[in-house]
Amino acid sequence: MATSAPPSLLTSPASTKPKHYLPPRPLLSSKQSVNHSRAVATNATSRRELVTTMLTAGLIASQLQPVSPALAESDEEYVKETSEVISKVRNTITMDKKDPNVAEAVSELREISNYWVAKYRREKSLLGRPSFRDMYSALNAVSGHYISFGPTAPIPAKRKQRILEEMDTAEKALLRGR
């Protein structure tokens, strides 16, 4: 019986290390090499100093900026919009339960209160204010009632009294700038 030869490889085996092409470095004399190294080091140092100087200047400038007028405008806007929401809440919860416009008024109140809460709960400067805290609490009570019992269900007297008291304290805090 004849033995056959092993089959030949169609491709050559891949080498274990890939061959990379690196361009040849220019040959520098020892004096040129030292000057080149100094130039690179000086260049790196000057970039580092430049970045450090720019960052320091930016930090100092950010600390020296005066209070922007946008904060004052937003504060006035907050007071105005909060006063409008207070009047809307008072008008809506004191409506007669037989009034045919109650459902529409409650719908408007929910829309206004959702807008107010979404807009001002992100403002860190307002979160500690008594006016914000009382308004948020009152709006939460009103919304919770209408969500649970429907837009035509009258608010119980005890809850209505607490909501109106919170509205009064929020309004007083607004007048004091708090």
Rank of each mutant, 00 (worst) to 15 (best):
R47Y: 02
S15R: 13
A70S: 12
E104K: 15
S143E: 09
T53Q: 08
E84P: 01
E108C: 06
I155Q: 03
S137K: 12
Q65N: 06
K31N: 04
M54K: 00
D75R: 11
P7A: 15
A138L: 00
V85Q: 07
P18Y: 04
A44K: 14
H20S: 09
T53I: 00
S87F: 11
N140V: 03
S87Y: 05
R48Q: 10
V142K: 01
S113K: 06
Y136G: 01
R110W: 03
S12R: 11
L175C: 01
K97L: 06
T82E: 00
S15V: 09
I112C: 07
T169V: 11
A138G: 05
A157G: 12
S37M: 11
E49V: 00
K119M: 00
G177N: 04
R162F: 12
L59I: 03
E123M: 12
S12I: 05
E171F: 09
G128P: 04
Y78W: 09
T152H: 12
V34Q: 01
R178T: 03
N101A: 15
R133G: 01
S107C: 05
S12Y: 13
Y115S: 15
A72L: 14
A141K: 13
V34G: 03
L22P: 03
E49D: 07
D99C: 01
D168A: 13
L175H: 08
R162K: 15
H20A: 13
Q161M: 06
D134E: 08
P7N: 11
R110L: 15
M135C: 01
R162C: 04
T56M: 08
R176V: 08
P154L: 00
E171C: 00
E77R: 13
I155R: 05
K124W: 12
K80Y: 03
S143K: 10
G144D: 02
A138R: 01
R178F: 07
P69R: 00
S4E: 10
K124M: 08
V40W: 01
E73R: 14
S107D: 10
T52Q: 11
T169A: 02
M167Q: 09
E84L: 07
T42F: 03
R176F: 09
S131P: 02
Q63A: 12
F149Q: 08
K19T: 09
E166H: 11
V34N: 03
T52K: 03
L10W: 07
K80E: 11
A14I: 13
E76G: 14
R133E: 05
T94F: 04
Q161F: 04
E111M: 10
A141S: 15
R159K: 14
E104L: 14
S15G: 10
L139N: 10
H36T: 10
T169N: 13
D75H: 07
Y78P: 08
R176W: 11
S125W: 12
R159V: 15
H36Y: 11
S37T: 13
A70Q: 07
V85C: 05
